[in-house]
């Protein structure tokens, strides 16, 4: 059976999610489902980088919370801006 290091597995997930984003972009897809998909996959990717690459897993909870709060804030801010845009258009 494959015996991958956690970081290698992380890398594979990151690559797949990036290819998915590229496919979405090339197909020119849009809409709420797509937006949610992109935001969630971005959150997963950044969180994986922070936890497994930066090694946040091993440092104090405080720093992990800051990172989580940052990502949630930025990504939900983006979602909010998209919602405002849609509302303005409607």
């Amino acid at each position: 059976m494959l015996n991958l290091r956690p970081c290698t597995l992380t890398w594979l997930v990151l690559v797949s999610l990036t290819l998915m984003a590229l496919a979405i972009g090339q197909a020119g897809l849009a809409g709420w489902g797509i937006l949610a998909l992109l935001l969630v996959s971005t959150f997963v990717k950044t969180w994986l980088v922070a936890e497994y690459f930066m090694g946040l897993r091993r440092v104090a909870l405080r720093w992990r919370l800051i990172m989580a709060a940052y990502l949630v804030l930025v990504l939900s801010g983006i979602a909010l801006a998209w919602w405002l845009a849609a509302r303005a258009a409607a």
């Binding site: 801010g77 983006i78 909010l80 801006a81 998209w82 405002l84 845009a85 303005a88 258009a89």
Partner: peptide
């Protein structure tokens, strides 16, 4: 993001 919302 917010600049975009004013100029989609």
């Amino acid at each position: 993001a917010f600049a975009r919302s004013r100029n989609v």
